[in-house]
Design a protein around this nucleic acid. Structure first.
Lengths: 337, 337
DNA sequence: TACCACCTCTATAACGTTATACAGGTGGTG
DNA sequence: CACCACCTGTATAACGTTATAGAGGTGGTA
């Protein structure tokens, strides 16, 4: 059933190697022969067996993007950008969902899948520096997000401290004084949660506001549900907050929901801001103010660096890039309501 | 760098074949030898080369799920379920985004990627019966959704006509009479849009309501933005609708946004219902009434049938399964507001 | 004419794995 | 003791591809 080089070679009456050369353009082939071969290829509908090609050549043209939460739109949007960029460079990007599971992350880093891809863009959350250093696979690795630092790989992330700082500054700017943070990490992982908490504290200090541990709500995960529950708890405080900074947009949207259900209104009673700029926040009611990372830059840069490493055109030392972000002010913090 | 069977064999002082037998458990190996080999495997950190294995065995353990919109949460949620089910059966599922692009769909069906996966779960929207029939790849294919019918492959979908009928029935039941439909397909593709339109018309007729073409709003795509624009247009009519049925939840959420912006309220002025039961609709304001397909059933069934075909345990004729759905009534259609 | 350079094309050895066929040893049975 | 069955392990040929070395032919130059 499957058509192989051999079938083409027989049909065209040439050798295996010649067909390969026509298909890959690796070495010049005479015009007459080339046409005969091409015709056979078209007629039989040949497409090369990637496994065999990989085995021989060491490249599949496949790269993977590994993310911790498939149903977080932030990653879906990022993936879409990365897929486009990869296609433009002649690569196919496959998505892998680690589901924030440690075993899944380890497997991805060093498991059997590594043999099938040319390189990996990875957003780790459950493994640390040691695991990345212990990796034996030799395909290039580009890290995104805050999971792991100080490893010999390219690394792309936003400045989480600064981003979080900007969010708080905005809330302070619209006159809020009791500012809560939803989405502190419970365990030791989720480095970005720590960094965003740090930015939160720094910004409070800079604004001359006290740091109140009671206004910091840890969550187990970072979905809408977690934000909703945390917001309910915050509303039950003797002195509830007048503003909330969500670890990400999903958490913030959950908080919005809890406010609505409790009969409060944002931003009148509580202003809400998130991070990620997912499309959902442009359509929520109220629309969500957010810190927008430059997803386009992150996605494209990650793919470009990975491909550069794969093709060996980039032999410089590992590079760490901080991509820009900007504040997008929408209804959930704007006074006009 | 990469550790191969040969390295293990040398280290353990046995033959290549024996190592392979230990790793695969294909044939019995003496206890002493097995332990020596296992130790070498652990020490050197061996993991089999999938390309080579595939080349020899014809299986990679990889299956693909191809969806038309990565940033539609419906597919993300479905993917998450399918990934879990696949893992439970010993397979790795990779996601492919066709972005509703015809070329991408064709490539997936018959391109070089086919050599690297054992089977494909496919939700086609731009190709039809002819293209599927012309496929030459011999790995199993399971179709989901309404894209293609009457082909010799397993097929899983909900009954779109009935689902749409149920949605309209609900709107009629709460007393609405001018019911709009957002998300009719513009072109000839998107079979499910046609089916949902048919259910809409049937239900109107069954309720003794007239079919008003002016209340049917075609959209180019099926995102929040499309729903928002369509709703705006509907509100500009001389006699705007008192209820809206969205092709999917995203469209319905866009409609909700347009209502809010125009100063209307759902369900008081216009009731809104969608299809898909994405998590976002449980947190929107108002929360979104929806027809919930049994995503768990679809995802698990699709994977199970595919794996059965791959492993040849299922040699029955192609099966078409209609999975159940149910109405989930939330704020956007419930009177208490 | 003799020689070399060049241009096409071909034969073949890998890549890492698994299935097949077989070799050697041990124990049991007639 | 002869024979067979069985168990454990091995050598080897594929799978489809590409890189390397080289074969054969043509044309140009000394």
């Amino acid at each position: 059933m499957a058509v192989s080089l051999k079938d083409i070679a027989e049909r065209a009456g040439v050798s295996l190697a010649t067909v390969s050369n026509v298909v890959n353009g690796y070495r010049p082939v005479g015009e007459r022969t080339r046409q005969r071969v091409q015709q056979a290829v078209d007629e039989l509908g040949y497409s090369p067996n990637l496994s065999a090609r990989h085995l021989r050549r060491g490249r599949t043209g496949l790269i993977a993007l590994a993310i911790p939460e498939l149903n977080n739109p932030y990653f879906a949007e990022l993936a879409e950008i990365a897929i486009r960029e990869a296609a433009g460079l002649g690569y196919t990007l496959v998505m892998e969902n680690t589901a924030a599971d440690r075993e899944a992350e380890l497997l991805l880093l060093d498991g059997s899948r590594r043999h099938i891809i040319d390189g990996l863009i990875f957003s780790p959350v459950r493994i640390g520096r040691a695991e990345v250093l212990a990796r034996t696979a030799d395909s290039p690795l580009v890290l995104i997000g805050e999971g792991v630092h100080d490893v010999p790989h390219d690394h792309i992330a936003i400045d989480n401290v600064a981003a979080s700082h900007a969010a708080i500054q905005h809330l302070v700017g619209i006159g809020r004084r009791r500012i809560a943070f939803i989405g502190a990490a419970d365990g030791g992982d989720r480095q970005s949660a720590h960094l965003r908490l740090r930015g939160y504290r720094e910004a409070l200090a800079a604004a001359g506001l006290p740091y109140r541990p009671g206004l910091v709500a840890p969550t187990r995960e970072f979905g809408r549900r977690d934000g909703e529950q945390a917001m309910r708890d915050l509303l039950a405080l003797d002195e509830p907050p007048d503003a909330v900074f969500g670890y990400n947009d999903l958490v913030a949207i959950g908080a919005l929901r809890a406010l609505t259900e409790a009969g409060h209104r944002a931003p009148r009673d509580v202003a809400v801001i998130g991070i990620d700029d997912i499309e959902e926040g442009r359509f929520s009611n109220p629309t969500l103010t957010t810190i927008a990372p430059d997803k386009e830059a992150i996605g494209r840069l990650a793919v470009r660096r990975l491909v550069a490493r794969i093709e060996g055109t980039q032999v410089t030392a590992p590079l760490t890039v901080q991509t820009p972000f900007r504040l997008i002010c929408r209804e959930s913090t704007s006074a006009g309501r």
